[in-house]
């Protein structure tokens, strides 16, 4: 039951901290012969699978490497275009590595501000009196937990759906934030948190939350 990552968003919707705790491996390498059974397309300057799921390769996966060489965007590092390579029968057999695209820092900043507005809309569209924004967002593969503190900071934890004790963990993260980010004389509020002590204590809090939930699920 892993905790995947932690985000901290300031009052204006800016991402001020992000950490990946557990990165699940989702990479598949396979050797193909001509012609390729998958349909690929360019999306967001990446080569993405748009049709044809097989052998663990899913729609939405991007090409991460060809014949062991890493791919940057739509090109190999030496400048060869990925789609041209795949269209040329002379290059076959070809080993292609697929995986979920890694989020860039810019994308993370965008997603954070997107969540900021979703939180506000969730509050506005409430059919019940006095509602907060989104606190728990559930999908079949992960759960997003959000705590908005009184000062307007949002703490977000992405965890496995079965991970327990995330509410307590969010409070603990707030405590760590108050102790090690806010009390740091070199930290100005609403700015990105770059502080070793905060990193270390946050990691310790996440690890103890994971251990605790392993322990309680072992009892049941």
């Amino acid at each position: 039951m892993p905790i995947y990552s932690v985000y901290v968003i300031n009052r204006a919707g800016g991402l001020i901290y992000q950490m990946d705790h557990t990165q699940p491996k989702t990479e598949v390498e396979k050797t193909f012969s001509f012609p390729l059974e998958l349909t690929l397309k360019i999306y967001d300057e990446r080569v993405v699978v748009s049709f044809g799921q097989r052998d663990g390769i899913k729609v939405g996966h991007t090409i991460l490497g060809i014949n062991g060489e890493p791919v940057r965007g739509r090109q190999l590092e030496d400048g060869r275009d990925v789609l041209e390579m795949i269209a040329n029968p002379d290059n076959y057999p070809i080993a292609i590595k697929f995986g979920r695209p890694k989020l860039s820092t810019n994308e993370r900043i965008m997603l954070a501000s997107m969540f900021h507005s979703l939180y506000a809309i969730g509050c506005q569209l409430s059919p019940a009196q006095k509602s907060s924004g989104i606190q728990v967002l559930e999908t079949d593969s992960f759960k997003l937990h959000c705590l908005q503190t009184l000062s307007g900071i949002k703490l977000i934890v992405l965890a496995d759906p079965k991970q327990g004790g995330v509410e307590a963990l969010l409070r603990k993260i707030y405590e760590v934030y108050s102790d090690f980010a806010l009390k740091n004389p070199f930290y100005s509020i609403d700015m990105p948190i770059r502080c070793q002590l905060f990193d270390d204590n946050l990691k310790a809090a996440l690890e103890s939350a994971e251990r605790l939930s392993m322990y309680t699920s072992g009892i049941n």
């Binding site: 019940a128 006095k130 509602s131 924004g133």
Partner: peptide, 8 residues
């Protein structure tokens, strides 16, 4: 699949 706020 779903989301929760403090009241709905």
């Amino acid at each position: 699949s779903s989301f929760c706020t403090s009241s709905y």
